[in-house]
């Protein structure tokens, strides 16, 4: 197999890698905020249950969570295993990343000075307005570097989808490597991930820069 054929075959899988990446971000970023708010809830039960769930999600390998989401419903309740593996993959990734994002959000929100809340309260902003207009924009700026870290990790984590037989780029690479008894596909995969992350880095850098107009 020529290098070009190899690259083209793996590039086909790249669209599935992108699907995991973008859908996971689409769902986990807002979900993480909900989880963060539950985690900071004044209701002790809500906050400690959320805390426990977060620690389970962060304390077990994503690979196991993928298996649990994909095959768990079948073993536990006899629900058919999904033919479209993108669904369980995105669910598992979104839940897992939401847990990480939630802790980042919480750190950001808790680092905000009390004075910002007080100034907003005295000026008559409602709690929602205060959060959305005053707190959140500053939190986002503050947590951007940590978010970028997670996003870069996500790019690489997409390769875990092979554990549930989702034919993304890395799975295809492994297949080719195997049938050709060759290491080249892994090198190609490495280059793909590196380029993908270079683009992500560039985009995140732009976003960070756009918020550098204030300190």
């Amino acid at each position: 197999m020529s290098l070009l054929t190899m690259i083209l075959k793996m590039a086909e899988g790249l669209s599935k890698t992108c699907a995991i990446f973008f859908l996971t971000l689409l769902f986990s970023l807002p979900l993480g905020m909900i989880v963060a708010l539950l985690r900071m809830s004044k209701d002790k039960v809500v906050s400690s249950v959320t805390r426990f769930v977060i620690s389970v999600l962060r304390g077990t390998p994503l690979m196991l969570q993928l298996l649990a989401v994909t095959y768990g419903p079948y073993y536990l309740f006899g629900i058919s295993v999904s033919r479209n593996k993108l669904i369980p993959v995105v669910i598992a990734f979104s839940i897992n990343y939401a847990a990480y994002f939630a802790e980042i959000y919480r750190g950001g929100i808790e680092s905000m000075a009390k004075g910002q809340y007080e100034a907003a309260a005295v000026l008559g902003y409602t709690k929602t307005q205060t959060f959305l207009k005053i707190i959140l924009p500053q939190v986002i700026k503050r947590i951007m570097p940590s978010i970028t870290n997670e996003v870069v990790t996500l790019v690489k984590d997409t390769s875990l989808a092979f554990t549930v037989s989702y034919q993304e780029m890395f799975t295809i690479g492994k297949q080719i490597a195997n049938s050709q008894t060759s290491f080249t596909p892994f090198v190609v995969a490495g280059v793909f991930y590196f380029v993908f992350n270079a683009i992500v880095d560039f985009g995140m850098g732009k976003i960070e820069k756009s918020m550098q107009y204030y300190k």
Partner: peptide
């Protein structure tokens, strides 16, 4: 996993 996929109807 192959057999689970078959068993689970995937």
């Amino acid at each position: 996993k192959c057999f689970t996929e078959l068993d689970g109807g995937a």
